[in-house]
Design a protein around this nucleic acid. Sequence first.
DNA 1: ACACTTATTGGTCGCACGACCAATTGCTTT
DNA 2: AAAGCAATTGGTCGTGCGACCAATAAGTGT
Lengths: 231, 231
Amino acid sequence: MSGMTSRGSGKRVRKAPAERREEIVAAAALVGLTEGLECVTLRRVADELEVRPGLVGHYFPAADTLVAEAFTAATLQELDALLPPAGSRQDGAAADPVAVLRRFFALTGSADFDNVSRLWLNARHLSRYRPALREHVVAQELLWCRRIEEIITAGTGSGSLTCADPSTAALRVLVAIDGASAYINTSADRRGAVPGRLAAALAEAELGLVPGTLAAAEAEDRADGPGEAGD
Amino acid sequence: MSGMTSRGSGKRVRKAPAERREEIVAAAALVGLTEGLECVTLRRVADELEVRPGLVGHYFPAADTLVAEAFTAATLQELDALLPPAGSRQDGAAADPVAVLRRFFALTGSADFDNVSRLWLNARHLSRYRPALREHVVAQELLWCRRIEEIITAGTGSGSLTCADPSTAALRVLVAIDGASAYINTSADRRGAVPGRLAAALAEAELGLVPGTLAAAEAEDRADGPGEAGD
DNA sequence: ACACTTATTGGTCGCACGACCAATTGCTTT
DNA sequence: AAAGCAATTGGTCGTGCGACCAATAAGTGT
C-alpha cells in the first residue's frame, strides 16, 4: 500500500498564517481555473490541501472573499505570462511592441488559453451574484486594459504602429478578445475560424498595421477543422 | 387579511399536459431572464406558478432540460423582437436592411437588452457544466447568426450594403456584440462608452457603410452618468 | 352515476454548501 | 520544563437542491 496520497489522520502540520493563506489562495486559484469558480468551496479547497474545511473557513470567514482572491491570483499570474510587466526586463531595452502583440495574440488564441477564457467568462457571470468577486473582476479588467495600453503607447512612441487613442484602442482589443472567448464552452471546436482571428484583425485595423502582422499562422493543433458548420 | 396572493391550499387546478408544460417553460424563462439560470430550479418555478415542486419535476424529470428549454424560450422570443423573422411582414415588401440593422443596434445597445446580455453570458458559462443547455445554446447561436446573415444578404442584394461573405460578417457582428455584453455585470455603468459602440462601428466597417449609419444617437436613458470611474 | 386515467399533491431521502464553535495540539516564550 | 498562544481539528446546524414515490382528486369516457 504505497499510494498513501493523503496523510489520512492525526498528524497536524502547523504553518505560519501568511504562508498558509497564500497556500489556500493558490489552491483555490487552481481549482477555479481548472474546474470553475463555483467549485472553489471551503470543502473543495480544503480537500485539495489535505486539510480540514474548518481551517479554510478560519482564514476566509466569508467564502466569497476566497473566490474573489482566487480569481485575482489566477488572472494576475496569467497576465504576467501574457504581457510581461514593464519593469521585468534586465536590459533596459523594451521588446518590439509589435512582436509583443504578436506573441500576445498567438498565446490568447492557443488552446492553452482556453482555461483562462473560461475563467473570465465564469467570473463575469458570477459577478452578478457576488459583490466581492465583482470588485476584483473590475480591477483585473482595468489592469489588463492598462497593460495592453502600455504596449500600444510604446508602439506609437517608437512609430511601429499608429493610433489616435491608445486607451480606446486597448479597450477595443480587449472587447474583441472577450467576444471571441465567449464561445469557449459552446463552440470551442471551430475556434480557429472567425472569432479567434477577429481580435487580431481588429487590432491590426485599429493600430494601422498591415493585415497579417498580428495574426500568427493559424496552425491549429486540431488540424481536422471542418468547413462551415456542417449542420 | 386581503393579501391572499396564493391560493394557499387545497384547490387543485388540473390542466392539459401541453398547456401546463408551456406554462412551466414560460415561467422558467422569465426566472432565468430576470434572476439567472441557476435560479431556474424546480422549487423556484413551482413557486412562481403557485404549484407544488413535484409537479414541475413530473414534467421535467431532469432539471437540466427545464433550464435548457427556458433559455431557448427566452432567447427565441427576444430574437423575434430584435430581428423579426423573414415571413413576418404582411405586405411582401421587406424593410430596408440598413434600417433593420440600425434598429437592431439601437435595441441591443439599450438598457432593455441588459437582461438578455446577462442571460447569454449566464448560459455560455453554465454550458460548461450542463450538456443539455450547451446544445440549446449552440442552436441559438446558429439561429441568431443566421438571422443576422439574412439581413446582410438582403442588403447586399438590394445594394444598400456591400460585403464579401455575409456568413463571416454576421458571425463577426455577433462576436462584437458578445464582447460588449461580456461587461454587463461588471461595468454596466460605462456601457455607453466604447464597447456599446464597437459592435455598430465594426458592422459599419464590415458592411461598407459610412461611420455613424448604424450607431444610433447615444441618448442613454441614464443621463446622470458620472465622469470616469470615480474610484 | 360509475369507473378509470392521470394530473397533482405532500412528503422523504441523500447530498453539498456556508457558518459556527468547543476541544485539541503544535510551536514559541518564559 | 512549564505556560500560553493560536493554528487546526472534528463536529453540528440550517438551508436549498434534485430525485423519487405513494396517496389524492380532477376530469373523461362509459
